[in-house]
Amino acid sequence: MSVTIAGRELGSALFLGTGGLPSLALLDPVLVAARPGLVTVSVRRTSAAQEGGLLDVLRRTGVPLLPNTAGCTSAREAVLTARLAREALETTWVKLEVIGDEASLMPDALELVDAAETLVRDGFVVLPYTTDDPVLARRLEDVGCAAVMPLGSPIGSGLGVLNPHAIEAVVAAVSVPVVLDAGVGTASDAALAMELGCSAVLAATAITRADDPVTMARALRLGVEAGAAARAGGRIPRRTTARASSPTTGRIG
């Protein structure tokens, strides 16, 4: 199950966030189990106690990197972070996050659109983390974003897709791929997102903070595949009454 964003075919519709893994040693087996199409990393100040090796592991696997601007609270900060990421990681792709509220970690819509517009003009492939608002999603598409990444529920909450109708509305509102980002707690959440028409799912905490991240990575991959297949298969309409699946004629008696 692949997905194409900005003309580039990614090998899997499951994207992996690396934040929260208890040990870097787990990254390799998690990558093997998840087989993600993209892997996110954050950009932070270097320190003497830096844990090395993250980029070495990621580069060895050849999986495309998606640096994020996590923690940024203004367009100015996010744009500089994206530019630093481009320089450090040699990629023009960025997962754009501009957080408006530290408690809810909801995006700041105005700063987000502003930063997206600047980065698109600057040649970036911008994948913005956004709310499940179809109007904002369309604004982001209008300024040239290559995909939109609505949240299913708050970052790290594991509450799944709280408003499936809103996600469907986002899918209907834009022509760029929709990537469900944030809120995924388990495989069925990922499957639901794909059933609703999302083109990919990004999961971080659901995998990295699971009891067994490697097994959960596999579960999420299968969830995404199952959901995509179900979407393609076309679910039956919901009915409020029963409808026999066995023949109603030829019964004995």
């Binding site: 966030g17 690396t18 934040g19 929260g20 893994l21 870097l24 990254l27 996110t40 990393v41 954050s42 950009v43 932070r44 100040r45 270097t46 830096q50 844990e51 993250l54 980029l55 990197l65 998606l66 640096p67 994020n68 996590a70 972070t81 630093l84 990421a85 450090a88 990681l89 997962k95 990004l202 971080a204």
Partner: peptide
Amino acid sequence: VEIVTAVQGG
């Protein structure tokens, strides 16, 4: 001056 690198995140 800011010197940055990639860390686990997202």
